[in-house]
Design a protein around this nucleic acid. Structure first.
Lengths: 259, 259
DNA sequence: CCAAAAGTGTTTAGCGTACACCCATGA
DNA sequence: TCATGGGTGTACGCTAAACACTTTTGG
C-alpha cells in the first residue's frame, strides 16, 4: 500500500451527471441539454455540474435536478414520497476514465432520477437548450452496442461518455421496477392501474395483459392504496385512483416477458 | 447551471476502497487492514488507496486488490472466468460526504471483490496488519442499524464510514447471488454442488435443502458444467466436480428463504 | 347500440417445497 | 455395520399465463 500522503494526491475534479427519466406519450424519455462550449460544443449532453467544496454528492445531484427541472428530489429512505411533484433520486455509478474529458481529469458520480411527466423543461430559462429525448432515439434499438460505439459518433450522439451513462441508467430503471415499487415514481401522486401499466410497458417496451397486471398490483399488499375517487381519462369505464403504498419491495416480483 | 470553468473546481482527492468478501469456515468474511496513521490510528479499515493521475477507477481497484491479496481480478465482461485464483471485481458505490475524512475532501469509489477462500492475507509483508474478519463480528446482527451508528463507535468499529461501505457491499453480494451465478466466485475453479450450497448458506445465513438445491443448480442450463472428476472431501459419497458455466444470469432466480 | 377501458372468474401448466428413498464411501 | 454426505423420485400447493366474461362510461 502506498504511503498515505494527503499533500501528494493527484488533482481531480468531481462532478455529478443526471440521468433524468420520464414517460411521455408512451415512450421512455431522458432530459438532455445542449452544450454551449467546447468540447462537444452544440452536442446534447446529460445535465450535470461540479460538486461544491462543502456539498455532499447526493445534495449536489438534488441541486442540479432542481436547477434543470424545478423537480424536488425526495429521500428514498423516508417512507412517504410526499411532495406533489417529487422525483426519485439515487446514485447510479461513477465514471472516471482518464481521458473521458480532454481538458482535465474529471470523475463523474452519475445519478438516476425518475420523474412523472412534466411540462417542457427549463434550463436556465433557455427553452430550446433542453429537451426530453426518447431514449430509443438516442441509444437506438441495440442499446449496449450503440452506447459503446457512440462516443465521437454521429452528430446525434451524446457528448463525453454520456451514452454509456444513459444506457446504464436505463438498464437500472428497467431492472429495478421488476422487484420494487419504483414505477410509481413515473406517475403523478394519484394514478390509475392502467396508467401504471403503461409505465411498465413504456419502460420495458412490451405489452402486458391488463387483467393479470391489475390483479398483480392490487393483490400485492402495501403496493397500492386506494385514493378514493375515480377518473375518466379516455372513454371507457372510470378507473379507481390509487396512491403509492408504503411497500418498496415487490415480492414476488413483476415478471418481465421475454423479448 | 453554473458556468463550466475548469480552472475553478474545488480540490478533491479520489480514492478506491475495497470490500473483499470470501467464505471461510462457513462464515462470510471481509478483508480489513490495520491503520498505521492518524486519523483512526490502530483501527481496522477497508483496504484502499489513491487513484493515480492516469489510472482508470477499475484499474486502481484491481491494483489495490493485487497489492493486498495477490488476487488477480478478472473482467466480468469476458466470458470465461479463466485464471485459477481470480476474483470477481465490480464497482459498488461512491462515498463523498464532506466530513468523511477530517483532513481533506476525499471521494471514495468503493469496489466489491468476491474471492475464493485464500491462505492468510498479506499486506505489504506485514502479517498481523491484515486479517479476514467475519462480517457478523464487525457489523453485528442488525447490520443496517449498526453500520449507521458505528462510526466513532467502539474500538472494534471500522475507521471512517467503512462500516456503511461494508454493509452496502454485503447487501449487494447477498442480493446479487439470487439472480446471477456470482456465488461461484466464492468457489475454487472446480467445486462440488455441496460447496456451492454452503456458500449460499454462509452468505445468506440460512439453511437450504440439499436435494432441492442440487436439482435447482444442475437443472439450470449453462450455470454449471461437469468438470469430469469426483472428490471425497469429508466422508460420504464422492461428489461430482463442476466448473462455472457461461450463464451469468439465473432465471428463475435462486429464492432466498424468509428469515 | 357500439367501442373502449376497467375489473372479475376460471382453467391450466410450471415451479418451488417438503420429504421419502437410494447410492457410495470411510470408519 | 453405521454414519455421512451425494443424488433421485414424487406429491402438494401456489402463482403466472391465457382468456372468457361482466361492468361502466362516451359517442
Amino acid at each position: 500500500m502506498p504511503p498515505y500522503d494527503p499533500s501528494a494526491f493527484p488533482p481531480f475534479a468531481v462532478t455529478v451527471d443526471l440521468v433524468v427519466l420520464t414517460v411521455r406519450r408512451h415512450a421512455l424519455c431522458t432530459l438532455v441539454v445542449r452544450r454551449g462550449e467546447s468540447p462537444y460544443q452544440g452536442r446534447w449532453a446529460l445535465p450535470g455540474g461540479f460538486v461544491r467544496a462543502e456539498e455532499d454528492l447526493g445534495a449536489a445531484a438534488a441541486r442540479e435536478l432542481v436547477e434543470e427541472t424545478g423537480l424536488c428530489a425526495y429521500d428514498p429512505a423516508s417512507p412517504p414520497p410526499v411532495p406533489s411533484n417529487g422525483a426519485h433520486l439515487e446514485q447510479l455509478a461513477t465514471y472516471g476514465a482518464p481521458d473521458r474529458d480532454p481538458r482535465m481529469r474529471v470523475v463523474s458520480v452519475a445519478h438516476l432520477a425518475l420523474a412523472p411527466d412534466l411540462p417542457a423543461p427549463r434550463a436556465g430559462g433557455d427553452a430550446n437548450s433542453a429537451r426530453w429525448a426518447p431514449v430509443e432515439e438516442i441509444l437506438g434499438k441495440d442499446e449496449a452496442a450503440v452506447a459503446a460505439a457512440a462516443e465521437d459518433g454521429g452528430p446525434e450522439a451524446l457528448a463525453f461518455d454520456h451514452a454509456r451513462i444513459l444506457a446504464d441508467g436505463v438498464e437500472r430503471a428497467r431492472s429495478k421496477i421488476e422487484y420494487s415499487s419504483l414505477a410509481t415514481a413515473f406517475c403523478p401522486p394519484e394514478f390509475t392501474v392502467g396508467e401504471l401499466r403503461r409505465v411498465y410497458e413504456a419502460v420495458w417496451g412490451v405489452s402486458l395483459d391488463p387483467r393479470n397486471f391489475h390483479r398483480k398490483v392490487t393483490g400485492t399488499p402495501g403496493f397500492l392504496v386506494p385514493a378514493g375517487g375515480t377518473t375518466t381519462r379516455q372513454g371507457g369505464r372510470p378507473a379507481q385512483l390509487f396512491r403509492a403504498g408504503g411497500a418498496t419491495l415487490l415480492n414476488p416480483p413483476m415478471l418481465r416477458p421475454e423479448v
